[in-house]
Write a protein that binds this DNA or RNA. Structure first.
Length: 110
DNA sequence: CTTATGACTTTCA
DNA sequence: CTGAAAGCCATAA
């Protein structure tokens, strides 16, 4: 299975109303140091996948929405998160999420 | 096969 | 706290 597919699979596991860092997804996908590739994977999403995958729940380690891509505005991500119950703050041109409250705490397996 | 690139993260000044 | 710098590694060219 491709790295991208593993990423999508993990992203779908993020509970509604929670967010996860790129690094977390990378770790779950099998490459703890491939956080940037998670972003690359999400950037490659197209039409239907944007609806079937909760990509809006993935943000950077500091709780900020780090999209600069124009086809999927960070504003849209903020809106999607808020409609799920996640509080998003808009400060100086950037959207922030309180990680202490909304970060997805991965349960211990094994 | 070799380079470039980047929806990231961590560290150091 | 702020910002610069260097790792990291899958993908694209």
């Amino acid at each position: 299975m491709d790295f991208n597919q593993r990423v999508y699979k993990q992203v779908r596991r993020i509970p509604k109303g929670r967010v996860a860092a790129y690094g977390q997804i990378a770790a779950l996908a099998g490459s703890p140091r491939a956080a940037r590739q998670v972003g690359t994977a999400l950037r490659a999403l197209s039409g239907g996948e944007l609806e079937s995958i909760p990509w809006q729940r993935v943000i950077n380690a500091r709780g900020m929405i780090s999209i600069e891509n124009m086809q999927t505005p960070k504003q849209e991500q903020a809106e999607r998160l808020q409609s799920e119950g996640v509080e998003v703050k808009f400060v100086d041109g950037n959207y922030w999420v309180d990680l202490d409250k909304y970060l997805w705490k991965i349960p211990n397996y094994k």
